[in-house]
Design a protein around this nucleic acid. Sequence first.
DNA 1: ATTCTTATTGCAAAATTTTTTCAATAAGGA
DNA 2: TCCTTATTGAAAAAATTTTGCAATAAGAAT
Lengths: 147, 147
Amino acid sequence: MDLQKQLNQQGMRLTRPRQVVMKILEETGRPLSPQVIHQLALQDDENISLVSVYRTLDLLNELHLVCRVHGDEDCQGYVLSSPGHHHQLVCRNCQKTVEFTGTTELEPFIKAIQEQTGFQIDGHLLQLFGLCPQCQEKIKKHESHKH
Amino acid sequence: MDLQKQLNQQGMRLTRPRQVVMKILEETGRPLSPQVIHQLALQDDENISLVSVYRTLDLLNELHLVCRVHGDEDCQGYVLSSPGHHHQLVCRNCQKTVEFTGTTELEPFIKAIQEQTGFQIDGHLLQLFGLCPQCQEKIKKHESHKH
DNA sequence: ATTCTTATTGCAAAATTTTTTCAATAAGGA
DNA sequence: TCCTTATTGAAAAAATTTTGCAATAAGAAT
C-alpha cells in the first residue's frame, strides 16, 4: 500500500521529513544511522531536522516499514523492510543489504530448540553477513594485485 | 579456561571490576545494560565505576566472553556467552536467557540463500524469543484467575 | 615478603546520542 | 479556501558513551 494512504488511514500525515527519510533509505539500500540519514538529507538540500529523523524512524519502525540492523559491535542502523516477516543479509564490506524470507525452513530447527529448552518460542531475529557479489569481485582483484 | 589465566596470558589483569561484572552477569543470566550492571554492583557494595563497567564489557566482548542481545526496539544488553558459536534464546517476559547451538542445522538454509543471492555468507546473528517454562506457568495461572 | 613495572582504575570533563518542550507550520478533511 | 490538529524545528535537557590523566593495585621478578 501507498505510504500516503497508510498514514492517513491512521490520522497521520505524509510530511516532507517522512518522504525524505524514506527516499534516502530506498536509494541507499544500506543500514543507516539517524545521523547519517540526516547528513544525506542536508546534502540533498532537504533541510529536515535531526529530531525529525529520529521521530520518523520510530514511526516507520512501528509501522514495520524499516527495521534495525545489528552489527557485531554496534547496533543501530535502519533499512527498509517489506511487510511480512523478513530477514536481512548484510554485506560486511559495503553494507548493501538484501532481504530474504524463510521462516518455514527454520521451523523444524526452532521446534527442536523448543523441546530441548522448554521455551515456547514465538519470534526470532536472524541476520546473515557475508560478501555481496560485487565485493567478492573487488576483493578478488585486490588480492591478485598483491602477488 | 580460567579467566585469571586467560587475561594474564595476554598481559592483562584480573581486577575487581572485572570480577564483579562477570559475577553479576553469571548470577543474573539476563541481558543487562551497563547502567544496570553498575547499579547491581553498587547494591552489592562493590564500588566500581560506571566507566569501568563500560571498559570491562568492551573487553569481555572482545574476548567473546559476553555478547550483545538485541531487543526489537532497543539494542544493548550483555549476557555471558560460552566459547564457540552460540545463539541466544531470550524470555520475552523475564528476560532469562539460555544458549543453544546448531549452526549445522542452519547450513542447508544458509546455502540456499547463498545461491539465491550470490552472497558469500560467513556469519550470522540468530536470537530466538519466547516464554521460558516458568513464565509460561505464571501466565497460565494469571489467565485462569481472570475467568 | 618486598619491590617494581605498568595495566587498570576512578574522577572529572568532553563528546555524542537521544528525548522533551513548545510555539509555529503545514497536511489534508470539510 | 478554511479549519483542525498532527507534525515540525529550535533550543534545551537528559542520557549515554568516551577520553585524559594522576593515583592505584595486579602480578612478575627479586
